[in-house]
Design a protein around this nucleic acid. Structure first.
Length: 315
DNA sequence: AATAATACCAACCGCTTTCTT
DNA sequence: AAAGAAAGCGGTTGGTATTAT
């Protein structure tokens, strides 16, 4: 069987000549009879390996080497929330993407988020150089479980609110305004994330009750409440010299990046259409400059923005 | 400039499902 | 209907490229 170590079976990276043989086979016989490739002595590859090579690399109209567009990311995140890790199913909604692509994308994303969340919780611990501060135990020394990471990664804490656009450049504007102008355009509206943890008064408007309806159920909020990811969002009073690592900044950026996706709760309301028949736009053209950079985000915060953040005590 | 960390991707493995005889 | 083969799927690994320090 294929699982066994067999003599003469080639493994590892494919050579161009092998690809050519495989392409010829498909041209002649269609994308099937994979095992016959070896039995005919065309290639020293298993049928399984041949099929995989075809599906993932040689098939026409694949978007090889293109990063996922924002739209593709959004679709993956929505569908993953809907279907779970059904990569093949999700891939059918993304023209030119394979299940492997989707899987790799998701796995990368998970790793990135998990790492950032893990390191950021350490970084959030106030600077030891602050002499006036009492000794504070690390309030979050626990490495998040996969589920927690998953939940953190998609915590559903945001709703969106249409707001008037602000000028990012003018001095003296509030940091939250700055944050809001770093938000993404979704559709034709300028949307701003409003984490439930934020006192919406700070944003100058009240939460939209309809959107709030869609926000996190109370019980799901417990985790976040007990281990806030972004203390300043929960408790934005001034405090001095709390240092945010670049990772933490990236975390914040990522949270805002969630704007590029629809909240999973919201996504459930969406009717994801049938699998795409055409590639999603011009791949080059899809590339959108990220309007948020940690620099611009944090440069716009007042220096004392993060003062007086008290770590949560463990109970 | 060197090294480490991270991201990305291709390919493999084992299991399950579907097809064929 | 049963058994074996083929195809499909999801998880994992390892190599390379890129970025950060």
């Amino acid at each position: 069987m294929e699982g066994k170590r067999e003599e003469g079976i080639r493994k590892g990276p494919w050579k161009a000549e092998e690809d050519q043989v495989l392409l010829n086979h498909v041209k002649k016989c269609g994308p099937k009879d994979w095992s016959s490739i070896r039995s005919k002595g065309l290639l020293q590859r298993t049928g399984k390996s041949c099929r995989l090579r075809w599906v993932n690399k040689l098939r026409p109209n694949l978007k090889n080497g293109c990063k996922f567009s924002l739209e593709e990311e959004r679709v993956v995140i929505e569908l993953q929330a809907q279907f779970g890790n059904k990569w093949a199913k999700i891939a059918t909604h993304l023209a030119g993407r394979t299940d492997n692509d989707v899987k790799n994308f998701w796995s990368s994303r998970q790793k990135r988020l998990a790492r950032i969340l893990q390191t950021s919780t350490a970084a959030i611990t106030p600077s030891k150089s602050h002499k006036n501060r009492r000794e504070i135990p690390v309030y979050h020394d626990k490495v998040p479980t996969l589920e927690e990471s998953e939940y953190r990664e998609n915590p559903k804490p945001f709703f969106f609110k249409e707001i008037p656009k602000f000028s990012c450049s003018s001095e003296g504007e509030s940091s939250l305004q700055a944050a809001s102008c770093s938000s993404r355009c979704i559709g034709n509206s300028e949307m701003v994330p409003v984490p439930e943890l934020v006192d919406s008064k700070l944003l100058g408007f009240e939460a939209d009750p309809v959107q709030q309806e869609l926000a996190l159920p109370a019980e799901k909020n417990l985790w976040i409440e007990s281990q806030p990811l972004i203390p300043f969002l929960e408790n934005p009073q001034p405090q001095t010299d709390l240092e945010f690592s670049s990772d933490t900044q990236e975390l914040l950026k990522l949270d805002f990046d969630m704007l590029t996706t629809l909240d999973a709760e919201l996504s459930k309301q969406l009717d994801i259409g049938p699998p795409f028949l055409e590639p999603v736009g011009n791949v080059e053209g899809d590339k959108i400059d990220d309007p948020i950079t940690p620099d611009c985000l944090f440069d716009d915060f007042p220096a004392d923005m993060f003062d007086q953040i008290e770590p949560l005590s463990h109970d």
